[in-house]
Design a protein around this nucleic acid. Sequence first.
DNA 1: GCTTGAACTTCCAGTTACTAGAACCTTTAT
DNA 2: ATAAAGGTTCTAGTAACTGGAAGTTCAAGC
Lengths: 130, 130
Amino acid sequence: MNIGAAAEHSGLPAKTIRYYEDIGLLRASRATNGYRDYSTDDLHRLKFLQRARSLGFTVEECRQLLSLYADKDRDSADVKAIASNKLDEIDKKIAQLQSLRAVLSHLVANCHGNDRPDCPIIDDLAGEAH
Amino acid sequence: MNIGAAAEHSGLPAKTIRYYEDIGLLRASRATNGYRDYSTDDLHRLKFLQRARSLGFTVEECRQLLSLYADKDRDSADVKAIASNKLDEIDKKIAQLQSLRAVLSHLVANCHGNDRPDCPIIDDLAGEAH
DNA sequence: GCTTGAACTTCCAGTTACTAGAACCTTTAT
DNA sequence: ATAAAGGTTCTAGTAACTGGAAGTTCAAGC
């Protein structure tokens, strides 16, 4: 299967698939014409990558997950550790964004948003506490 | 004032200040020895940048905000527009992360995390719906 | 006056995960 | 035969820094 079809089936752009090959995430065999040729197993790996990435795992984490995926004797604890870590990171990120949101929404709510120059948002950025 | 002191007062690393100069966010005058020399106004701008960045504004947004900061005849509506936009982005990001979090925490909760190989996290990534 | 170390200078490379585009080759359809 | 579609490689650009190298300049101590 050519890269275009593999892209379609996996939901990853062809460019991205080539990139993943570049960084050694997976290698496809080549047909006689030099085109990449994807097997059913390759397709599974591509879909696996697509799902893992969309869940927020980094490419390096995907590399680990792929190798755990390939290892039929893995400990589920190893997988869980990676996922739990990611969960913690997501929680931290959410908390951070929520605190940003609170500050920013307070500022926005207090700005008249008219054609006059006085603006509590600018004042706050300038360090002029009200 | 030298860049080291400016860094200390603004809370921005010296490297970052030089970078901001590189991309034209602000320019400092030079002393006779070639060292950058920061005025009180420069310091205000640096602190302004530090606050705006920590609120999640991109460098390009900071550029706009800085120019509105400098413009005493600005319309507060222009500032509010940028901030409201950012608020929307933050909201979208939070929603996205929360939905990720839901999926991931479900997977983590269902994985035994022991020394056995069966793992619902891997199964899900592999597309094997339970 | 000399030396040492900190702080300054510039410039280049690396980070993350792609994405755009150029130049070229192969396949498929008309 | 030719044109469009899809494949190939390679380079460079994105965001916002950060690290490090190689080379001044300054301040302090002897």
